[in-house]
Design a protein around this nucleic acid. Structure first.
Length: 483
RNA sequence: GGUGCUGUAGGCAAAUUGGUAAAGCCCUCUGUCUUUCACGCAGAUGUUUGCGGGUUCAAGUCCCGUCAGCACUGCCA
């Protein structure tokens, strides 16, 4: 049988890292098995679902490289199918109408809690007579539809991640609501546990791979598969993504949407790579790999059972690895938007070759794309801002002379080559009778205004292309004379 | 309260059906390279698998108990 798996997000928020990670595992499994990966939008909760979130989910998955083979399928288009199935369950006598009000349910729950019992529905309307139903209707009550869960039932499945999982019917909270009262619809509005099952049957889903927070739902859903006379798919419950305190990662933890990670300067390849590692370890122990590479060796039995703590340090490291090995001509394209956003003074469109050289110089110090702003700060513009240490160095004996002789050497040279620059440094070292290190440091101070930064020779050549080396060195001389 | 799951160095983790534990990666530190920072390369620190029992020639792995953490316990998904 062809493997068919799906990711079924609810469009009630932007694409969440947890949803994306589940999508990664499904995608990996599908690609490993030569199966299909399907996108289904679970928007039965019309009050909370928004189309803009559907867009965020689609664009987020696409950005990560998680292409889907079928869909998106929208549950909101399929209410007719759900109603049909509800009727089937009603006809079979495995579902019934419950007329309890929210207040009654609440009273029941608090009474149970007061008695230190597990809160659950006591199945009180399971066997109502026609007269009783008529009486409730006459009161104006709107029924929900409940599916019978027998306490003595034992539900067992072989989880692809966790092994054999056993659940008692009595621990499922009583007969479950599969449709809530609708304003017009006699059969109500179908709810999550029901529609998931109906769709997974209808779409011939063979493996359901989702977060472990769904384990209890799985037990309920298996009962529905049986009631609908369908084959039960295989299940795999993946560990949750945890924050640094060990709790399920939530919106309160700050950055959780894929959109935010993108804006923070993470590459899609790095994100996808890291998400694979959130609960899975490749057999070859390599930690840098593409989705395709991971898919070729993916298996659910290497998925961890313990929660996966989100490790920012590791994500940063992975991102830096991708950044460092990316060709400058490709990287520069990704950097330009950040420079633009930061309001760079120079014309970013008209200076691709220059920007590409700049990119090559700063690339090794980038961890996130956003770092390009800080790392290139000293290379933009015709002037410098001397920090304390640079000022101190420039005031050392002989330094002013070094700067002046360099200036003299470049004054009427339009464009320096690397060997020109090296020659000048050598020459100045000789004529001023100083060590090369002092020349380099002096030059760095005068050219950059600070004593640390990327490779000096390359930086100089970059500035030279714009004529900024002359303006900056002149400025350094002026400031030296004033102080 | 109930049910379920998890517990290996600072972090992520590896360890075929029980067979020498701490592989690998991140972080930290040191060395190296360099004018400097970063990158790269080389090396180092960390320790006995939450705790207590049991089975066994042998237990991270199996069993019992205990503690801790997390998840679920909706007319949300």
């Amino acid at each position: 049988m062809t493997v068919r798996v799906r990711i079924a997000p609810s469009p009630t928020g932007k694409l969440h890292i947890g949803t994306a990670r589940t999508a990664v595992f499904n995608w990996l499994f599908a690609h490993n098995q030569g199966g299909k990966f399907i996108l289904r939008i679970e928007d039965t909760d019309t009050a909370r679902s928004r189309s803009e979130y559907t867009e965020s989910i689609k664009s987020g998955l696409a950005w990560l490289g998680l292409n889907w083979d079928e869909g998106p399928i929208f549950q909101s288009d399929r209410f007719h199918l759900y109603r049909e199935k509800i009727q089937t369950l009603l006809d079979k006598g495995v579902a019934y109408r419950c007329y309890c009000t929210a207040e009654e349910l609440e009273a029941m729950r608090s009474a149970q809690l007061a008695r230190k019992e597990a809160p659950r529905y006591d199945n009180r309307h399971r066997n109502l007579t026609e007269e009783q139903e008529a009486a409730f209707l006459a009161e104006g009550r709107k029924p929900v539809i409940r599916f019978k869960i027998h306490d003595h039932r034992e539900i067992v499945w072989k989880d692809l991640v966790r092994g054999t999982v056993t659940w008692k019917g009595s621990d499922l909270g009583g007969d479950m609501v599969i449709a809530r009262a609708g304003d017009t619809e006699d059969l109500g509005v179908p709810l999550y546990n029901l529609v998931v099952v109906i769709d997974d049957i209808d779409m011939s889903i063979t493996q359901v791979i989702r977060g472990e927070d769904h384990i209890a739902n799985t037990a309920k859903q298996i009962l529905l598969y049986e009631a609908l006379g369908a084959t039960v798919p295989q299940f795999a419950h993946t560990p949750l993504i945890l924050n640094d305190k060990g709790q399920k990662l939530s919106k309160r933890d700050g950055v959780t949407s894929i959109d935010e990670f993108r804006k923070m300067g993470f590459l899609p390849e790095a994100m996808a790579n890291y998400m694979c590692l959130l609960g899975w370890t490749p057999p070859d122990n390599e930690e840098i790999f593409s989705l395709e590479g991971a898919a070729s060796q993916f298996s659910l039995d290497r998925v961890n059972k313990a929660g996966a703590k989100f490790d920012w340090g590791k994500l940063d490291w992975i991102n830096s690895q991708y950044l460092h090995q990316m060709p400058a001509e490709q990287l520069v394209e990704l950097l330009v938007p950040y420079w633009q956003q930061a309001g760079s003074e120079i014309d970013l469109e008209g200076h691709r070759p220059w920007l590409e050289s700049l990119t090559a110089i700063i690339a090794p110090s980038l961890t996130r794309l956003t770092d390009c702003i800080a790392e290139s700060r000293l290379l933009f513009g015709d002037s410098i801002k001397l920090d304390e240490k640079a000022k101190e160095l420039l005031q050392q004996e002989g330094v002013a002379e070094i700067i002046k002789s360099v200036l003299a050497a470049i004054e009427d040279k339009p464009q320096l080559t690397e060997s020109d620059a090296k020659g000048i440094i050598k020459e100045v070292t000789k004529t001023q009778k100083v060590k090369k290190g002092l020349v380099m440091r002096s030059l760095r101070a005068g050219l950059m205004g600070e004593l640390t930064g990327p490779d000096l020779l390359q930086s100089w050549l970059l500035l030279n292309q714009k004529g900024w080396d002359k303006t900056r060195l002149h400025q350094a001389c002026r400031e030296l004379e004033i102080s």
